[in-house]
Structure formats: C-alpha cells, structure tokens
Design a protein around this nucleic acid. Structure first.
Lengths: 212, 212
DNA sequence: CAACAATTGACAAGAATTTAACACAAATCT
DNA sequence: AGATTTGTGTTAAATTCTTGTCAATTGTTG
C-alpha cells in the first residue's frame, strides 16, 4: 500500500467490513456516511476520514456503494490473498480456532496442527491431523505456511516462536500470555484473553464505585 | 475510583501487572520506571504518567516497590473482588475458557455452563455441568452471577444477551461476532477474533507491499 | 551527617486522533 | 434546464494521548 495509516484506523476497518457485510446480505445497495454512522454509533466524520485514507470510495449526492466499498476494504485488509496457516497447541482453544469455518471463507486455510502431547497426536480437526512438534520445521518449509497460531501455554511459546521464525513463518497469531520477541519482518498479533478479562473487571468495579 | 481515566491507560494496566508478576516471581524487590521501560519497551515517561493517574505509588530516589505496585494495580483492576461467571456456549471455545485455571486464581469462579445442544447437556468441564438454556434465567438469579461469557454464534447472541440483561447480569464477555446493544449499566468487553485475524492479514500484506 | 546520585511527580510541549465545518460535485426534483 | 438537495472530500479546530524536562525528594555513601 502507501505511507503510514494509523493503527487506530486499521483497527476499525474490520468493523466497517462487518457492517457492510450485513448490509450486503440485506441487499442494501448504497449507504451514506451518516446512515452508517447511526448504525455503527460512530461519527460520520470519522467514517469519511477513515475511508479517505485509502482514496475516495464515495460519491457526492450518492454515498457509498455497499458492494464496492466492501470489496475495497477487503482488499485493503489483504483478504483477497489466501493464507496457509497452522495451529500449534491442539487443546480446546486450538481446536476451536481450527474448527471455525469462517476463517476458511476469508481465505485462511488450515494446513496442519501440532502438539507435544502424544495423546493428541493423530487426532483430527476437519480432516487435519495433529502432528508431533518434531515435524514442525519441515512442515512449515514444505507446505508454504504463512501464519502460525500459537495456542500453547506461555512457558513453551518463546521457544516455539523462535523455531517458527527460523523456518520462515510470516506471521504469528499469539494467544500465549507472553510478548514475543521476533524480527520486525514477522508480524505478530496478540490476543491476550486475560488482559481482556481484566479490563472487564475494571469496568465492573469502576461502575460499582461510581454508582454506590 | 475517581473521574475518568482514559481507555488507553486501562488497556495498558494488565500488561504492567503481567510484568510485575514476573518480577515478583524473580523476587525483584524494587524497580524504577526506566528499568521497567526497557523491559516492556515503552517510555519511562509513559509508565510514570500512567501510574500517576491513580496516585503516587513510587518514591523519588527509590523507584517502585514491586509487591506494592502489583497489589495496587490489582486493586485498580478490581481483581480483589470475586466474580461468579457462567459460560454460554459449550463448544470448544467455551470449554477452553472454562478450563482455564488462571481465571480462577484471579477470582473468576466458574459457576455454570449452558448450551442449547442436547448432546452437550450433562457433560462436564471441571465439575461444572452443562445445563439447558431454559435453566439460564433462574440460575443467574439464584447463584449471584456477575459475568456471562458468550461463546455462541452471532445468530443467537443478541437474544441471549437480552435474557442476560433481564436477569440482572452485570457484565458480558462477548466472543460472538456482533455488537451487543445493552443498557449502559451492563459492561461489555468484546473479543472479536476475526477482527484480530484481519488486522494480522493487513499487516502481512502491507509488509509485503512495502518490501517487494 | 553532608554531599551526591537516583528517580519520582508534575507539567509543558509535541503528536496523534477525533470531531466539526464547509466548499462544491453529483443526483434529483420541478 | 435550472434550482435544490444530498453528501463527499478536505481543511481546520478541538481533544486526547504521549513524550520530554526538571525541580523536589529520597536513598546512599564516605
């Protein structure tokens, strides 16, 4: 793409895409920034400004064409590519993510799963077999894997990340509760569930404080 | 608590807590903002400013006492309370969250699980039985449930959220891929996994664009 | 116990983000 | 066809968030 779009804007794009998808499903053809702003509970100004980071997708007096805008945002997010991914850690969380069919629809193809627990090796999620950790390096190399999903406890995560990087992984979707230290050319997206739960806890207790 | 602390600050607190926990485990007694800043890869200034939102936890010439700071941040996040929670949706994701013992350590107590699938009803996660949806309202009321974790597909989520609110739930940890519309006194924390994956996708493709 | 080093807390300056305002192109109405 | 309305793209203002600086305070050392 181009220069530097702010993280804040990127973070909002998936939400735009979601609402546009719903509009598509309802066969809505066009929508104005102000209509969308009501739906999404953000300012119309922000919508226009966000979209204009990537060029003018709308038209005065008409608004935005839903299909067109949807596909443009998809492109911006890189969703027209296909990505091969593997899951490391075949516990419940790993299996949940592996079984999530919507990822497939978006172009994320599950190629393999790995675990160090012998009891899990050989079990399957959607025709994908769980393999032992020893096979990981060669598998990444010979199957053109782009993304590794890390659903293992934090203790092992740092070491596994090292192996992944050494074998040319492009990105890590990290559910382990540590900050990974990887080269800048490897993209990391963290999902720290307990952080999220703590924020909820803060909100509950801060609401109670303010309203007692 | 007091006036309005910015969302950005709150969002960083769990990460501070995590690093302080690690320091505690290593029996580190005190740490200065600049040492911590190296560890956490943020500016010392930000650490000091963040903490000062809540009062002066440090001491000139000394730094911050790790144990004390840890417990103060815990308090701010409301982690000294106990919260009773239930999980709605006993699929892999629900089971993964239900089985996560660290939540228990933080004071989040799993009281029940619910699902509409008859095949799952009666199965157990850590001695907690999966119950049918019909039992949900009375269970919330009679077991003093604070938090509901929503791990069901988006189709059912809006309706279930309504039921939760009607029965006095305080907070919803929402993994369903919709924005819930609840009264302001109900706290909602969204975990939209596909949004997170799309951000990763953006980063991969934008990195490739810039480096081809 | 005085001098010095360390380090916070406070505040100011600087960035970044969000919201508002508006000129004007496109669509629609009469 | 001309007038009116709609609604973008853009620039400007307001707000929020982050970083840098420094006086004040505390701990440490000889």
């Amino acid at each position: 793409m181009d220069k530097d779009i702010s993280r804040a804007v990127i973070g909002r794009l998936p939400r735009y895409l979601r609402y546009l998808g719903e509009l598509k499903d309802k066969n809505v053809e066009r929508i104005s920034s102000s209509e969308l702003s009501v739906l999404m509970k953000v300012t119309a100004s922000q919508i226009r400004q966000d979209l204009n980071n990537f060029g003018g997708f709308g038209q005065q007096g008409y608004g935005y064409n839903v299909d067109y805008l949807y596909s443009e945002i998809s492109k911006i997010l890189g969703l027209e590519h296909q990505y091969n991914f593997i899951i490391i850690g075949a516990g419940n969380l790993g299996k949940a993510l592996g079984g999530y069919l919507n990822f497939e629809k978006r172009g994320f193809i599950l190629k393999g799963m790995f675990d160090k627990d012998p009891a899990l090796i050989g079990t399957e999620v959607r025709d994908v077999k769980v393999m032992p950790m020893e096979d990981l390096p060669s598998f990444i190399r010979s199957n053109d894997i782009d993304i590794a999903v890390l659903t293992i406890p934090k203790e092992g995560a740092v070491l596994v990340a090292k192996v992944l990087v050494e074998n040319g992984i492009k990105a890590i979707w990290n559910f382990a509760h540590v900050d990974l230290d990887v080269p800048e050319y490897v993209q990391v997206e963290n999902v720290h569930l307990s952080d999220s739960l703590m924020k909820l806890s803060y909100n509950i207790s801060s609401y109670m404080e303010n309203n007692k």
